[in-house]
């Protein structure tokens, strides 16, 4: 049996067939999309977009990361794109407004000028509060891309500093600054869009 050079013959190489990707990674991608989007049909749609985009991008896939990681990366971008489109259409433009506002929170002496409000969320029950998580994602989609990526890798994917820096190709100091800015903006966004909307105090 003759093999053309571009058709590897080892069993693992079957991952070269895009249709096999669906069987191998479809569930993982779907679960991830579902956890972010909370909507089965939409998750299916985004997973499909991901596979189709991967098909076209595959010639450029260098194999530096595992195929699954690569697909996950595409999926994450698709989700962020989707959320950004979605929330651009909603009336709440506060997400944008706070995008660069970390400094406005403090006076020139470094004290709070916008004091943190009391949040009535019970930390133990956060994940049961769909509304909270929805707004959380809305906020995550609203902050600058790189900050959202840093936050996601650190707090959702659980990477440590070393792994995060490798993934994003930044220095440790830079990573801490980005995470700080991401947290400041997310915190403020939640305070404006959820806490104040829920329970004025």
């Amino acid at each position: 049996m003759t093999q053309s050079p571009s058709q590897p013959s080892s069993p693992e190489a079957r991952t070269d067939s895009p249709e096999t990707w669906v069987d191998l990674y479809g569930d993982a991608l779907y679960r991830f999309a579902l956890s972010r989007l909370k909507n089965g049909e939409l998750a299916e749609e985004i997973v499909q977009e991901t596979f189709v985009a991967a098909l076209h991008a595959y010639p450029n896939f260098k194999g530096r990361s595992a195929l699954k990681t690569w697909l996950m990366g595409i999926l994450k971008h698709k989700i962020i794109d989707h959320l950004r489109r979605k929330y651009r259409e909603t009336p709440s433009d506060q997400v944008e407004a706070i995008a660069d506002g970390a400094d406005e929170l403090f006076n020139e002496k470094g004290g709070w000028s916008v004091r943190p409000a009391k949040w009535s969320v019970h930390p133990g029950h956060v994940y049961e509060q769909k509304e909270f998580l929805d707004i959380f994602y809305q906020c995550l989609a609203g902050i600058p891309d790189r900050l959202a990526e840093a936050f996601t890798l650190r707090e959702i994917d659980g990477l440590d500093t070393e792994e995060l820096c490798k993934e994003m190709d930044i220095s440790p100091t830079n990573s801490w600054t980005m995470l700080y800015r991401a947290r400041m903006q997310l915190r403020r966004c939640l305070e404006i869009n959820w806490i104040e909307g829920e329970d004025k105090e």
Partner: peptide, 19 residues
């Protein structure tokens, strides 16, 4: 308060990972 709120952001992230 701020410190607790950042802990909550972390918790929110983790709860999604668990889910």
């Amino acid at each position: 308060r701020f410190e607790k709120q950042l802990a909550l952001l972390r918790k929110a992230g983790q709860s999604l990972a668990t889910y």
